[in-house]
Amino acid sequence: MIEQIREKAKELLTSGEVKVVIGYENGGMPETTRPVFITSPDEVERLIWNKHCYANLANFFVRKEVASLGKPAIIAKGCDVKAITVLVQESQIKREEIVILGVTCEGVGEPLLSKCPICDVNTPRDYNFLFGKEIAPKNGINKSADVEEFERKSPEERWEFWEEQFSRCIKCYACRQVCPLCYCEVCIADKNQPQWIETSSHTRGNVHWNLIRAWHLSGRCIDCGECERACPVGIPLSLLNRRLAKSVKERFGYEPGYDQEKAPPFTDFKQEDSQEFIR
């Protein structure tokens, strides 16, 4: 499969249809990969594809350094494509200005990342060229089993759990940097007039940051899991993300990353939206 990808990359670069191919190359250590930006047809041999290709490369579209290279082609798994769909929906990129080299994927990571068993986009939903054998989407998967499991805890247990988790946050903002959908040039966390997120190293500010990070991705997060993977202190951020995904799906019948024409749920409303919590 990688041979076909390299061939296509070479062809696109040679013809000048794209100026850069965003893909993966071998990392410095065994079983690691890192993003690579191929701008010359001679370098396509560097491209690789294996189950250690975790990174959601859609993150790089909105980076100025990458954008300045010219029209990109990107190697994208089904989950990565969902991020691209949201970026198109939010007018961050134009679909016709990118080339998606879609790869079918049976899951990444050893053991598999937690998002992989609940994936229903093993074959990307959108691509210009597809590599690998098409995999039919699984039916009847419960995407929020871990959420439901956690919800069985009492409120006190839940509070205690998150309090401990958030207390370890060092506000390095790796979760934000790695997120393909955290594309604001000035993040709310960097604003100091007024000060949205307290900067001192106490849990109170950490709570605010972690709630707002999750909140700003509500109805948008496509569960690529990069935030959780990047977190140096191991906060289970995907659990929060999936809770919000569940909420948006149950309340508004919406799942992000599937339809770029739909209005994002928090920019839309229905008169009959649920309001059981309002007095």
Binding site: F150, R158, S218, F252, K270, D273, F277, I278
Partner: peptide, 19 residues
């Protein structure tokens, strides 16, 4: 109406955190 959606989502998040 927009506020109602936000409050609905955000309260679900708070509740999940044991708030």
């Amino acid at each position: 109406y927009h506020a109602r959606r936000r409050f609905a989502g955000f309260r679900d998040l708070l509740e999940f955190c044991g708030f």
